[in-house]
């Protein structure tokens, strides 16, 4: 299976960990090539987080990730909907999806 193109968005302060870039379009490689050891062909959010960590996360990964998921307090929206409605880490990514990460961890 060939790669996927997805749009990633970071806001609420999460962008500070990603060169202050709030929106970017990325092309994901074939999953077999990126993570051959897991024997999967379909990208899910779980693998996307690994890819983000390896390719985009510039500093202090612990402020974005915790275990194999995002740090509690960071909201994830899949095509503008709460990821909690879509299986969270198990959500299977589709070509053209928009995944948004909003940090709630800053004060108000």
């Amino acid at each position: 299976m060939s790669g996927l193109t997805v749009t990633l968005q970071f806001s609420g302060g999460a962008e500070l960990l990603f060169d202050k870039v709030k929106k970017r379009e990325v092309e994901l490689p074939a999953l077999e090539k990126f993570l051959p050891q897991i024997n999967k062909t379909d990208w899910s959010l779980r693998e996307l987080l690994v890819w983000i960590k390896d390719n985009l996360l510039r500093e202090r990964p612990e402020l974005f990730l915790q275990g194999d998921s995002v740090r509690p307090g960071i909201l994830v929206l899949i095509n503008d909907s709460d990821w909690e409605l879509y299986g969270e880490l198990d959500y299977k990514i589709h070509n053209g999806d928009t995944i948004m990460f909003i940090s709630t961890l800053h004060g108000g």
Partner: peptide, 21 residues
């Protein structure tokens, strides 16, 4: 809840400031 406040601001497109001190 904080989550709902952030979601409300997001869907309503309210502009807020989010940089740490």
């Amino acid at each position: 809840y904080e989550k709902e406040i952030v979601m409300y601001a997001h869907y309503k497109k309210l502009v807020y400031f989010s940089t740490e001190c």
